[in-house]
Design a protein around this nucleic acid. Structure first.
Length: 223
DNA sequence: TACATGATGCCCT
DNA sequence: GGGCATCATGTAG
């Protein structure tokens, strides 16, 4: 594992060159991947931008036997990525407004994924604010939650769209969308039922860093 | 070709 | 706490 950066300058330098999590990380049960993704960094790095957010909330979707999963309907042109190799971005458009980012899990031929639900902004806050059509000057304290607290919000902040990013390999070093491990480990993790679904709604498959203010949901605004 | 639906977010009360 | 915008997708006809 690479050495954990300490100062913001070190972090930026490290973000620009660190290796992504390998395919093996994703080649297992989505429940395990969802839990272990907490505390990792989702990074968009191109020549013109460096955006990074710490993953603080995820949900596991188990595959064809999970009624709430897109994979339950079987393989279609929309969801084929779920059956692809582990570590690929599955991006879909929802409610006529929003993109959501998932990463494929398990070996090729077996469906399963993890939904990214919330990030804590780490680098590129100003660019994220512009992408979200918010005033960068206001993005401090609680208002910063508006940047990346929610699957639609984080996708907009990171510039994630289906035409641009669907089926992108998040484990390839040359990719502009990656997940990195900077050595951070969450103190305490909570598990709850998944948000916004009607089928199989009772299963404890949502994972979050306890006490983190960037976890989605109005409950978390207080304090 | 038509229609129902949704792994959301925003604005209003 | 509730209403609703807005459209890609899948399915039915």
């Amino acid at each position: 594992m690479p050495k954990a950066p300490n100062t913001p300058a070190e972090l930026a330098s490290w973000l620009a060159s660190a290796p992504p999590l390998p395919p093996e990380f994703y080649n297992r049960d989505p429940q395990w991947v969802a839990r272990e993704l907490l505390g990792k960094l989702l990074v968009r790095r191109t020549q013109s931008e460096l955006l990074a957010g710490r993953i603080v909330e995820t949900e596991a979707y188990l595959g064809q036997d999970d009624p709430a999963a897109h994979a339950a309907a079987g393989r279609t042109p929309r969801n084929f990525v779920l059956w692809g190799p582990p570590g690929r971005a599955y991006v879909y458009f929802i409610y006529g407004n929003h993109y959501c980012l998932n990463v494929s899990c398990l070996p090729q031929g077996v469906a399963g994924c993890v939904l990214f639900r919330a990030l804590e902004p780490v680098a590129g806050r100003t660019e994220m604010a512009r992408a979200r059509h918010l005033d960068p000057a206001q993005m401090h304290g609680r208002a910063a939650r508006l940047l990346t607290s929610g699957p639609g919000r984080l996708s907009e902040a990171m510039g994630i769209t289906r035409p641009r990013d669907n089926d992108k390999d998040l484990t390839e070093a040359a990719s502009d969308l990656l997940v990195l491990d900077d050595g951070h480990r969450p103190r305490r993790i909570s598990v709850t039922s998944r948000i916004g679904i009607t089928k199989a709604a009772g299963h404890p498959l949502r994972y979050l860093i306890e006490g983190n203010e960037f976890v989605s949901g109005k409950k978390n605004i207080s304090g």
